[in-house]
Each structure stands twice: as C-alpha cells, then as structure tokens.
Nucleic acid binder design. Structure first.
Length: 923
RNA sequence: GGGCGAAUAGCUCAGUUGGUUAGAGCACCUGCCUUACACGCAGGGUGUCGGGGGUUCGAGUCCCUCUUCGCCCACCA
C-alpha cells in the first residue's frame, strides 16, 4: 500500500513501513542533510554554522537501542537547528576499533578455518580484517538511516581511511617532534588474551572477592626468624626480588639489609627499607615483584633491583632468559596464571610457608574488550606526555568556553584532567595505524616520519625497520572533530565548521574520548572542538541492568521501527530521558515500552485525518489574512497556547550556542551553563500542546463551528490548519517522518517543499487577555463531573440554568453551540425551577443548575457542596492565619503577600457563594 | 579509601532562585464504539515527598545526621 497525496484519501491507519523509506530518500535526494561551507558565517556566509560530529560506532557494530538514543538526540538537535536557519552539519562515520575488530576476525578465523593470526601472517591478516571491516562498516550507517538520522552522508568518515590515517601520522609526528611522545620502559596493563598492552582507561576496575595470603619468608642465616608477607597474588611469588618494610618500622629494623630465603624458589632476597610500605596494612611487609606491579617497579628502580619477567605474553609462568636464574620452579613453568596460583598455594602449604588465608575484597583491573584480568607487565611502550595537553583543556572548562551537562560530570572531568597520567598509545596488535617510527638497523637512528622513509637520514643506509606496534584506536578518535573536516589540510569545511557545537555521548567515554578530543582540539587547532558536552543516560531494562548482547536483555531498534515506526521509537526515547537520566524499557513488552511514542504518533495521524476530512480540498484563507477582531474565545486561547508551546520548546532545547560576537570564542555565562538540551521537556511541551490543547479542546470546540458555512467556519478552518502546521514543525525534529507525511497534505502546501527545511515556528507573544475560554472550559468540566457523579449516560442531553455575573452568563450563552457540543448540555432561559437539581458553583462565579428530578438526592448534593466548602474554608483559614501573621507580611516579598491577598479575596468570594448555595438548598 | 549523585503515586520520572491545594506518562478504577482516533474519549490521585533533627513567617526544595541504592576515581600488597 502506498499513501496517496490526495488528502481526501488519507488512510485510517498510519503505515510507517510504507512511508518512512520513501520520505528518507526524498530528503537525501533533495540534499536536505548536506551542509554548504560557503553558507557558514565563518566563511563569509549568512548562516550560523551548527555542527555535530557523530560518535563513530565501531565498524562491526549492529544498531542497538543505545545507538538509537544517542543518534536521536543528535538528530533532534540538528533538525531543530536546520529548521531554525542554521547551516547545520552532522558528520557521520565509523571507527576501525583496533582490538575489538581484530578480536572479531580472530574468532571468526578460528571458528571457520581453525587458524590463528600467526598462521596467516601480518600482511594477510590485516588484509583479512580490512576486507571484513569494509564489508560491515556500512551496515550500522544504513541502520542509522532507518531511524531517520539526518547526517550528511556525503561527508561520511572512517578513522582508518587514507585521509584520516594521514591526520594520525601528522599529529604523531608533531607530538614526537615536540617531545610529547616518548618510549617508556615501565609496568603497563597487559591483556594476556588480546596480547597487547592497554591504557589506564582500558583496564577497568572491578571489585572482586579474593583471598589475602600470608606467606612466611625465613631469614637465610637464621631460619627461626622470619618475615610474614601478605599478598593477593601468590602466582607472582617467583618474581620476587626483595621484601620491603618501612624504614621506621621497629618490628623489622633488625632485618633490613639481611637476606631471606624465598619460600618458593629458595633464592636469597634482600630485605629493603622503603617509605612506600604501609606499616598498618597486612603484616607491614611487602614482597617486591618489580616486573609485575607498577608500585613494585618504582621501588625496584629506587633500589636497583633486578626485574625478571616471569609471565609470558599469554600469561604462563616462565623464567626470564635475560635474568638467568631459575626463579620459577620446574613444576610451575608453563602453567597459566590461574593454575600457577593453585600449584604455588599447594607448594606453600606443604612446606609450611603458608601462614594464613583470609577473605579479601579488592579492585582488580580487567580488559575493557574481553574482560580478562589484566596483568601488570614490564615492557617498552610509547607514551604521550599529557600534562601540557591538559592545561588548556582545563582552562577552557574553568572559564566557561566548554560546559558539560549534566553538571555533576564537570567535577569528574576536572579531577581527571588535574591528575592526568601519561597515555600508553602502543598496542601489540596488527589492526590499526602502524606507529610511524623507523629505526636504522645500521646506526640505530630513530625518528617519526609523515611519509615512509626509504633511507636513514643520518647514515644513508636503507635498512630501516618500522616499529611493529600499532596505535591505540583512540589515538585516531581523538582527532575526530577536525580530522573528519579535512585536517591537516586547510579545507573549506575545516574553516566553515570547526569548532563544532555539541558533542553528544555516553558518560562512559568521557575520558577515553571526550577529554582527549578537547586536548587534541587545542593542540592541533588551538581551539576547543565544541562548546557543549552532553552526556546522556544509558538504556536499561526493568531491573536496571544495562541492555547488552551478552545479557540478552537488549531491544533491537529495527524491530521497534518495524512494529511501530521510527517516530514511535524516537519519541519514546526522547520523552523518557531526563537530563543525564537513564531510560528504562522492558524488552519483554515492547508494546508497553513504546506506547508513549506509538500512541502519540497514532493520535497525530488522526488529528491530521480529522483536519483534512473537515477542511477537505476547498481553499483555506491563509492565517495571516484573517481578521483577528472576529476571533472567538477558543481562537485566542489556542493561539495563546501555541505561542506558549513554542516558547517552552525553545526554552527546553536552547540556547544553541553560547553568546559571542562574530569571530570571537563564545563563553557560557554562569546562568546558562546548564540550560537547554532538555529533550524530554521539549517532547512533553509539544505533546501537551498537540494532544491536550489542540486535539482535546480546540478541535472539539471547532466541530460545532465547522458545521455551518460562514465567516466563523472560515476562521476555524484557517486556525486549525495554521496551528496544526506549526505543531507539525515543532514535532518534526523528534518525529520527522509522520510530520513530513502529514505536512504535505495540508491545504496551501507548496509542492516540492519539505517540512525538514521549513521554518521553525517563530516565538510570538500572543496576549490572551481575559481568558473567556477558560470560563467555558470550567463550566464544561463541571457538567461532565455532575454527569459522572450521578451516572448520567453521556448520550443524555441535559439542560443547565445559568446565574452569576451577567458578563459571564451572556458569554456562555453566546457560545451555547460550543457548550452544548462539549458538555452535551443545553442552556435554558430563566431561573431554575424548584426541585431536585445538581448545583455547580464555579471559581469564576458562574453558577450552573441542572434539574435532575429523580436522579439527584438533595442530601447528597448538599453534602457535596458542604464538603467543598469545608475544604475551602480550611484553606482559607490557613491563608488568613498567614496574612494576619505580622512576621509573614513583614518578611515575605511584597509580591507574594499581594498574591496571597488576591487569593484570599477570591476564595472568600467563592466561600460566600457556596454558603449561599447551602442556605438556598435549605440545609 | 576518596569524590559525586539519587531516594517524590503501583512503575519510570518532573518539580525553576524556598511561597503554602506536589505533577506527567504508563499501570489502575468507573462510565462510554459521542460521525479523527478504544493506540481513543470523559471522570477519578491511589502520596507520612526515605527516617530523624535544624534554619525560616513559610521546606519536596536549604543545612546536619542516619538508612538504602547507584556512579566515578584510587599505587594498601
């Protein structure tokens, strides 16, 4: 089924499936998503640039609901700014994801061919990964299109493309030449499954229940004396080269300088004194294993101790060949870490060296890619010296050039920056940017090069060896905001679109990526890459568990799109996310989870249907041509509500950027540092207007007017079309498809135009004046309530007698058509007859009497009114108490006191009316 | 160990610089196929705002404290 453009043929059901794909193609074909650098104000154009760079999903990624959330937020922003007239650009792309992608291909290789990467060899393996990545990296981008992402696909980037690889080489060489990249020999985090080193951020802490072993080290020359040492990792015992105690620890003073006999290998290890040792922890004595603990390494350096590496790369016990000693007993050599722990424990037990085992919970680092326990390991790695890079990144944050939402993450950012540590950027894998450092095999000269060198620049020999390692995948990601725009070339894009505006991502990668992008932005471009960091929540299930493939609690966004449409997915996600708050969805009940979006999309469609059926194909007077003096109360009311809704949406989304003079860097004023980016408030404000105001009241109020031809009908038709048009525009960023589908059916639609590029509603202050429509609403609701109280069938037409202020009764009479339609109640002339009747006394002073002989029980009616009177009098009493309290009138702000006085007058008047009513009813 | 955040309706959450009748969606109860919509309409709030104390004319909102969760950071083996 395809949907016709003929408004008289609007289908009863919105069929997202047949609509969305075609609309998306229209947008792409029309170039809606393409930004033009010539239009940017930075290159002399007229439009303010508004730029987002998409956090690049991994090449192997399949769309999950987290991507859905992240990209919908970005799409809402970019569609909003596009409609608001900005030169809006959303740069998409993918990340080659070094370790992650290599792991996927290695697994595939093992499963399908039973081969390892070594069986293939480096070149063939890399080629294999490249082929795989090239084949899969389009998938996720295709899926992002399905949910409506309006990214500029003509600028799709890839961290491993030739252009971006050039950017990586460029920044490496600059840092190298500036002395900010160096080779370090130290203990790093080693994943013995991925066979590579990891950065501090990639080795994630996790609390684990473990054991604390106390092991006895006897003095070599007097076995009756000993030192007990506590360790959580007995498998590292063979690597011990000393036992350290605190220099001022009296318990061990006599031991310092003497040798202990090692309980596992019998070698002699000295007792050394070092202030690093905490006297209070464990036994106050610490075994030193310099090659397998970062702190022990520092101690080892201070005391010039040997540093034998007793674990092989894949985590098996060994003896260090260079060390020359048999530290690891023959029975232990070749065991993996876990088996070795058990064997050594047995060994200690049988020799009596194991004094105690205690339960002990501590934080253990795990590989962020494969969750294997990370092994600290001594090795040579490349590091970036971070402190100089952090300085401007911290300053920009402190002076307001960069803000982070929600606020609580700002402290986390600052703390990390202030205590920044050098970044290990070398990885011992094959998939990634090769480190561009060459060493001359003849003379040993080493240098980083932008282009592959063919001979040594020092000795002229041509035997050069490139460093075998590759760079951390984040070493390419941190350049993303400018490498995607052409850096290091001075491209028009770079000039027009850098710096970007908002970076939308999850808090997990604040350090991995966001903080480093800011540092790279300053280092390479001299300016922060964006002014706002927006960190959104995580999608979780009903047990608050993060949705993940391994837990099997994920939601496939494509299934949701299939079932309910992309708009329902998007709206549900947006309305469910407070600032930095997680979104809870039930994977077991998609129907319920996505009800908010699905229901609203259907409602919107039906409002459209009604409108088009009523308005039909007859011409409609343009809104601007209407004579406002002829407006009815409902007209003024709905236009006022519309202007309020626009203001609320603007306030929820914006400001789009910090205030700044052209050509200067914007700084967030303190008052605006946390404003805007309230996607849920925007969704809520738009929904409230469309559903609760436009549909529930205005459309209903118009039904009676539309039945009779004449100028009043024309006004209603015109305002219906106008307000719905504006409502569709307000909703387009969050529900792009259905709004586009409806908008083109509106009367007056100009063929070929798109709501995606239509103008965002102007914020127009529309003064309401006396809210007469409010009086009407109150009266209608009072009748409905009486009907409900007395179980009167909705179909039964009632008759009401009016009394109260003449202006109000006259007004309601004037609107009798509308009133009778919405309340199913006619207005009688004259006073109410005597007898049983339902009485309503409204806050406006209007009174309604519904004669209901045989239905209304006088006693019940009196009780209802008395009950209301009681409540009111109670509150009035409290209010009067407050007003007679001198402290209140003296200390409270005058406007508050004044407001309270007004309220008192209002309530008193109403109480009087209720009292009169009680009296009238003879009770 | 340090830091941060949260605790409001059955569930998920709003609640501006303190202003006095605490809101929404979903769920729920009652009545309705009222010629756009039952994915709907009308009516209904079902709450000691985690406990205790304090500041204030006034506290869901500010302070202290306790309890329970969650997150981040961390070189006590």
């Amino acid at each position: 089924m395809t949907q016709s453009d003929d408004p008289t043929e609007i289908p009863a059901q919105y069929d997202a499936g047949s609509t969305e794909h075609a609309l998306y193609q229209e947008w792409e074909k029309a170039g809606v998503f393409r930004a033009n650098p010539a239009e940017s104000a930075r290159t002399g154009g007229k439009r303010a640039p508004y730029v987002l760079v998409m956090p690049p999903p991994n090449v192997t990624a399949k769309l999950h609901v987290g991507h859905g959330l992240n990209n919908t937020v970005q799409d809402v922003l970019v569609r909003w700014r596009r409609m608001a007239g900005d030169d809006a650009l959303w740069v998409p792309g993918t990340d080659h994801a070094g370790i992650a992608t290599q792991n996927v291909v290695e697994k595939q290789l093992a499963a399908e061919e039973g081969k390892t990467r070594d069986d293939l060899g480096r070149a063939a393996f890399v080629e294999r990964v490249r082929t795989f990545a090239d084949a899969t990296r389009g998938d996720i981008l295709e899926q992002l299109r399905v949910i409506g992402s309006s990214a500029d696909w003509s600028r799709t980037a890839y961290t491993f493309s030739p252009a971006l690889s050039q950017a990586v080489r460029e920044v490496f060489v600059r840092l190298y030449d500036d002395g900010l990249i160096y080779r370090g020999h130290r203990v790093i985090h080693w994943c013995s499954r991925c066979l590579t080193s990891l950065s501090d951020e990639e080795a994630e802490f996790e609390d684990e229940g473990g054991s604390l072993f106390t092991v006895r080290y006897p003095l070599a020359d007097d076995p009756r004396q000993f030192i007990d040492v506590a360790t959580t990792r007995p498998e590292t015992l063979p690597g011990d080269v000393a036992v350290a105690v605190h220099p001022e620890d009296e318990r061990y003073a006599a031991f310092i300088g003497r040798n202990l006999k090692h309980p596992v290998n019998g070698l002699l290890v000295p007792v050394i004194a070092d202030e690093y040792v905490e006297r209070e922890f464990g036994t106050g004595a610490l075994k030193i294993t310099p090659a397998h603990d970062a702190n022990d390494f520092e101690v080892g350096k201070r005391h010039q101790l040997p540093m034998p590496v007793i674990f092989s790369a894949d985590g098996h016990l060994q003896n260090d060949a260079a060390d020359g000693l048999q530290r690891t007993p023959a029975g232990i050599v070749g065991l993996d870490r876990h088996a070795a722990r058990i064997e050594i424990k047995k060994l200690l037990k049988s020799s009596g060296a194991l004094v105690e085992i205690k339960q002990h919970s501590h934080a253990v680092r795990h590989c962020y890619r494969c969750a294997t326990v990370v092994e600290p390991r001594l090795s040579d790695q490349w590091f970036v010296k971070m402190a100089p890079l952090a300085k401007p990144a911290l300053e920009a944050f402190h002076d307001g050039r960069i803000r982070i939402l929600p606020e609580r993450h700002e402290a986390v950012y600052a703390q990390w920056m202030e205590n920044i540590r050098d970044w290990n950027i070398s990885r011992q894998i094959w998939w990634g940017h090769r480190i561009p450092v060459w060493k001359c095999e003849a003379c040993g000269f080493e240098k980083a090069y932008r282009e592959d060198p063919s001979q040594c620049e020092k000795c002229g020999k041509s035997k050069l060896a490139q460093d075998p390692d590759v760079l951390d995948t984040w070493f390419s990601s941190w350049l993303w905001p400018f490498s995607t725009l052409g850096w290091p070339e001075a491209t028009p894009d770079l000039k027009a679109f850098y710096p970007t505006d908002v970076l939308v991502t999850a808090p997990e990668i604040l350090f991995f990526w966001v903080a480093r992008m800011i540092m790279a932005g300053f280092y390479c471009m001299g300016e922060a890459p964006f002014h706002t960091v927006y960190l959104h929540g995580t999608v979780r299930d009903m047990d608050h568990r993060k949705m993940s493939k391994s837990l099997g609690n994920g939601i496939d966004p494509l299934v949701v799109v299939e079932k309910f449409g992309a708009d329902a997915l998007r709206y549900t996600l947006m309305q469910g996310m407070g600032l930095g708050v997680d979104v809870m969805l039930d994977p077991a009940d998609l129907e319920k989870s996505f009800a908010p979006g699905r229901n609203f999309a259907t409602k919107l469609w039906n409002i459209g249907r009604f409108l088009l059926m009523q308005v039909g194909t007859e011409p409609v007077t343009p809104f601007a041509a209407l004579d406002r003096k002829s407006f009815r109360s409902a007209d003024n009311w709905i236009l006022h509500r519309l202007s309020d809704a626009v203001a609320k949406c603007d306030a929820a989304l914006g400001p789009a950027r910090p205030p700044s003079e052209i050509g200067t860097v914007g700084v967030w004023p303190h008052a605006q540092r946390q404003s805007g980016m309230r996607l849920d408030e925007y969704a809520e404000a738009a929904r409230r207007f469309v559903w609760n105001e436009l549909a529930d009241w205005y459309v209903e109020a118009c039904k009676a007017r539309l039945m009779e031809a004449g100028p009043d009908r024309e006004i209603a038709r015109s305002i219906l079309v106008h307000t719905f048009d504006q409502a569709l525009r307000l909703l387009h960023p969050v529900m792009p498809f259905i709004t586009e589908a409806l908008w083109r059916k509106l009367p007056g639609y100009t063929s070929g135009t798109l709501i995606a590029t239509a103008q965002w509603p102007a914020r127009e202050a529309f003064a309401l004046g006396d809210n007469q429509f409010g009086v009407l609403q109150e009266a209608i609701q009072a009748i409905r309530q009486q009907r409900s109280d007395y179980a009167i069938p909705p179909a039964q037409m009632l008759t009401a007698h009016l009394s109260g202020p003449a202006a109000l009764t006259a007004f309601v009479r004037e609107e009798r058509l509308l009133f009778s339609r919405l309340a199913r109640c006619e207005i009688a002339e004259g006073a109410a007859p005597a007898g049983a009747a339902a009485h309503s006394v409204l806050p406006s002073g209007l009174q309604l009497v519904l004669p209901l002989l045989g239905v209304v029980d006088l006693e019940k009616e009196v009780a209802k009114i008395k009950n209301e009177l009681n409540g009111l009098e109670k509150q009035l009493g409290a209010l009067r108490g407050r007003l007679s309290n001198e402290k209140f009138t003296a200390k409270a702000p005058p406007e508050i006191v004044e407001a309270e006085r007004d309220k008192e007058r209002e309530w008193a008047a109403r109480a009087e009316l209720l009292q009169a009513k009680v009296k009238e009813l003879g009770a």
